[in-house]
Nucleic acid binder design. Structure first.
Lengths: 333, 333
DNA sequence: CGCGACTACGTCAACGTTGACGTATACCCG
DNA sequence: CGGGTATACGTCAACGTTGACGTAGTCGCG
């Protein structure tokens, strides 16, 4: 800016005024300043601009355990949509493991983001309280916060899993295999809870040996399913706890030629679920809407709304496509 | 920092020293400073830190035409991987249309990113030259730059499309339908070019009426395919120019009961391609690797390497799964 | 013509941090 | 004991920008 001012032979303040469309600059001077800016390839430094603490940086922080999973992508899309409407940029950071999370989040805060959306990896987020008190709204997604009072946007995992399981029970299934990721993940635990609740309602015992957890990808889920289906008393139906597991399960059923004999309901919808044979019945939830909701909550707080922090729980929807409507085939009889 | 210093009764500089792990501070003072920082919930302002022009902001800018598409997600994943290794954050911005792109990119530059990765939407990027001269490396992805000399990381679209088309020709197909997005998109044009090159090699005429472009999503692609397959002289094979089109094509073939009669090769792999009946033959390219490559190029330039800007073209791979190996069924004979 | 109001500027400080450089005290060595 | 030097600080300016406030010149009006 100094260079531009020198080039035109005016003061730095006039350049600032032109840049911000303030008046108090004659048309002729403004013209010359604009031309000098173009010539010199001037670009305002928004970091310096956001230095005064009152000012906004027009940047919101988004922390994800890892970039590039289907869930996170849809989430990012939803958040991005709202952020763009609000003229804000999204500063993304992969928090990775719980240990790195704190470091990542404080790095985001050090960049003076106007708000923070967190998909939690760690256990305690009390360390974010100073930011919150400094007026930076924090919204948690997919898992409630611990150690801090903040908004959370969640999926009704338990109800979805209950509905999915009830759907299988309604077809007469009593031996339902469960395949999912690590139970320490909040959503996984919730889903298992819902599954068990459905079993209880129908007074069906929960069989530990039909549950295979810790499958972190489709490959691991496939092996878990092969194992499950190859056991002495295989399940007549499968309930998979996320779309990676669902895809793994389909691969396993394919291999064993059981696609039309073992029923399956999967949590999370996926784009080609209707193209698989049989089409996959899923518990779908609108992940983009979760992102939009979280972003909206955040911007509302930034705009001054400050109700007590609360939870927003979004519903799930069972989409029956075929795989979940396969009736029981009792091999033993 | 001033508050912390006042709280401890020391100078602001000592706080700075502790923060940066410099020596020249006694253990006792350091201890008291650390404690005060914890008490006051102090967080360093990295914006102010990056104000001195020589300093890096540890932030790289990534501009995408839109967030949340499969291509971009994988790309982000790859870029994020490298950025994390380098301790940098990724500031993402959706550039949307060409008109908004300039605005978006300058906003990123105004935030003083250390480097810029651009998936171009607009036609001319000459306006980025000042940044480049200021030492901010710019890397283009998926489309070469115009109006500026910069690195580009591309997929060998033409060769991939050539190989895919040749594969269908080898099965005897002579009437190959093409379904894709708008031809003004670089990758689409390149793919069509490769397709036509393959036809020329085998001296097969390119039939304009078998080409349906402008399909921006699976839905539109499906309708294009239904139209194409319902025409007087339908194609015996389909070549789809991206995964959305491939999915749309599969839906169309399903509806018409032609999945086993019309061959299909699709550009872009997708997760469940092997689960569809018949499994989908695709031209696959490693999008994450594109992201990693672009990020690596950028960080290398940031580290001082400055070879002449060039293009890196990554290869494609034909994955034969079944749909592309269906031989010609000549309905007319 | 004197006064107020307006226009078109300019100056200065502050935002939070760090590099460059200054200084007071203690300590060691010849 | 003088001089060097190491330690543990402190002061100041600068980064780029803008809010607050000052000022010189012009114009209009009574």
């Amino acid at each position: 800016m100094k260079d531009v001012a020198a080039h035109v032979g005016t003061s730095i303040k006039s350049v600032s005024r032109v840049l911000n469309g303030e008046d108090g600059v004659s048309a002729a001077t403004a013209e010359r300043i604009l031309q000098a800016m173009a010539e010199l390839g001037f670009r305002r430094n928004d970091l310096a601009r956001g230095l005064r603490q009152s000012d906004r940086t027009s940047t919101i922080g988004l922390a994800l355990p890892q970039a590039g999973t289907r869930f996170h992508d849809s989430l990012v899309h939803g958040i991005d949509e709202i952020a763009r409407q609000q003229g804000s940029f999204v500063l993304t950071a992969s928090s990775g493991t719980a240990a790195r999370e704190r470091e990542t989040l404080t790095a985001l805060c050090s960049r003076r983001v106007d708000g923070l959306i967190v998909v939690p990896a760690g256990e305690d987020h009390g360390f974010l309280r100073p930011e919150q008190q400094a007026g930076v709204p924090v919204v948690f997604v997919d898992r409630p916060p611990h150690g801090i009072a903040a908004d959370a946007v969640l999926t009704d995992h338990a109800e979805g899993a209950r509905a999915g399981t009830a759907h299988l029970l309604r077809q007469g299934h009593r031996r339902i295999g469960v395949v999912g990721d690590d139970e320490r993940i909040f959503s996984v635990a919730e889903r298992i809870g819902g599954h068990r609740a459905a079993l209880r309602t129908e007074q069906v015992a929960y069989a530990e040996e039909l549950t295979r957890l810790g499958a972190r990808c489709a490959e691991e889920a496939m092996h878990a399913c092969l194992d499950l289906l190859g056991s002495g008393q295989p399940p007549t139906a499968l309930f998979t706890l996320n779309n990676q597991c669902t895809i793994g399960a389909v691969r396993a059923l394919r291999r064993l030629g059981l696609t039309r004999r073992v029923a399956m309901v999967g949590f999370d919808d996926f784009e080609t679920a209707d193209l698989i044979d049989p089409p996959v019945t899923v518990i779908s939830h609108d992940v983009e809407e979760i992102g939009r909701t979280a972003a909206r909550l955040m911007f509302e707080r930034m705009a001054g709304h400050s109700p007590a922090p609360g939870r927003t729980t979004l519903p799930t929807k069972l989409i029956a496509r075929g795989s979940g409507e396969i009736p029981v085939v009792d091999e033993s009889s």
